[in-house]
């Protein structure tokens, strides 16, 4: 499964949305359910799915699908 597909499933599950609501270009601003609570759920789910330990100061910057994908690539998590 591509990293995006994995991310799509994780985010859809965390935000309780259908998978196709998450697009490769989605940002926190566009998706109503992606609020500050939803964001914490995405971060926790990412850590568990990719076996990561994330710095809390990075949370705020990971506010779009491209930003998260870039982060995962940099962490060699994908």
């Amino acid at each position: 499964m591509s990293t995006f597909k994995q991310l799509q499933e994780i985010m859809a599950s965390a935000l309780e949305l259908p998978t196709d609501a998450i697009r490769e270009s989605s940002t926190m601003e566009e998706i109503e359910e992606w609020d500050s609570l939803g964001h914490v759920h995405i971060m926790v789910a990412l850590e568990q799915a990719f076996d990561l330990y994330m710095d809390v100061d990075d949370f705020a910057e990971l506010d779009s699908v491209p930003a998260i994908l870039q982060y995962l690539a940099a962490e060699n998590a994908a």
Partner: peptide
């Protein structure tokens, strides 16, 4: 279960 697994 992880958060995602709990959802499933």
């Amino acid at each position: 279960p992880s958060l995602q697994q709990a959802g499933k």
